[in-house]
Design a protein around this nucleic acid. Structure first.
Lengths: 128, 128, 128, 128
DNA sequence: GTGGTCTAGACCACC
DNA sequence: GTGGTCTAGACCACA
């Protein structure tokens, strides 16, 4: 299995976080389907030219957040869990973000516009 | 000046975070207007029956995020900054949140519904 | 033999775990008696509309934990083993859980209340 | 600040887990009170004769589970969060454990006896 | 092979 | 000083 992950070594976001984000993005866009077995942490690390532990940390974080599971063959496999607790957390986070934006002086319309732009951008990447 | 802040001592969110959230909410809802001088950290702490440092931590975090500024008298004052960097950060955060939601298996419609519900809830508290 | 197992495809707990839990529950409640031959993994999988491997994983985990055994005909059979090692493990787990609860600030009374509620709920399902 | 933690290097439970358990136990018994600053990961590691990362892993796990928080001075501090979500999780775990015990053939009385013994043991260590 | 764990040494930003 | 992060190399149990 071939993984296309771009890593910016000189970014301010940690490498393991970049891997995390890229895999979530790939699941969201449909590039990684449910049941897909990810390359082993060691192989992906070799491909990216980084350390095994860095990839391992990303994989374990993804497992904690239920984007991956470890099967009995000790492979990391993509799952789409749809847990409702996540949605509740998301709601709380969004409420807090909106309050901050409005406290900053942005209007509801501006926020909605921004949200729609972001969703459009997301949808495009899904269609490619 | 009197501050109405509700603190849940038995919550799982830290107290300083609760103060932070409550003040942002008060600015968003219009209860706290630009230029309002907040009560000193010591007074608010006494009113809430909590430690001075806890309030101080919340105030400093709010200043860092440009919701408050420290005037010559060393008072914390409400400001509405409208900084565009915040909007950019917000976009990135929203994009990441949406990707996680979609990776979890939620549809675009479900997410939009959730967002509209959250905005409605927010608007109501603004009108009260 | 007919098995009544409810599977929530959109749950956050893995399906094989749900099957595991349901079978343990059925043994505890008396619905599945010692010596009962379970339907083959293939049949159960077909009935539930899920993958054969998922059921197989659950069955093997149950055998590992001595709730099932594999007879000469390679059928999975219910057994009630009463092994004391399990009780020892259980004690250790309970001790750790209690320590966590007390460290969280819950009182002994609260914990006892919770335990009695849980046992009552358990007993009711046994009587049905 | 002096920490009394016993580590079994030749145990089958990972060292970071032993540290985790010992600290939870210390909070439960009252040896570690809310607000207590833990020794730095580096110092504790030196005292125990183990690696910094091992202690760090334990500390971060404790923070994730809300037994510790990282203050603005980057110190790990004991907190007693009393979050209700924990109690809900605990209930589910207990229910599952009871079902397993009953499925094994243990009676309700035996389980209650065991639980009371464990609670007594816990209470004693709290009083010392 | 795999991931889980532990060790060791390094640089960073923050205070 | 602190924790956060990354690298490097090692041993283990498991399958």
């Amino acid at each position: 299995m071939i993984m296309f992950i771009k890593i910016e070594l000189n970014s301010d976001t940690p490498i393991y976080m970049q891997i995390y984000d890229e895999i979530v993005k790939a699941i969201a866009s449909g590039d990684l389907k449910e049941g897909t077995v990810l390359p082993s942490a060691r192989k992906l690390a070799a491909n990216l030219g980084i350390n095994f532990h860095t990839v391992n940390k990303a994989y374990n974080l993804l497992r904690e957040h239920r984007f991956l599971l470890l099967n009995r063959k000790k492979e990391f496999v993509v799952q789409r869990s749809r847990d409702e607790k996540f949605m509740e957390k998301l709601k709380d986070q969004e409420l807090k973000l909106f309050e901050e934006a409005i406290a900053k002086g942005f209007t509801e319309k501006e926020i909605l516009n921004m949200l729609q732009n972001v969703l459009k951008r997301q949808k495009k990447s899904e269609e490619l």
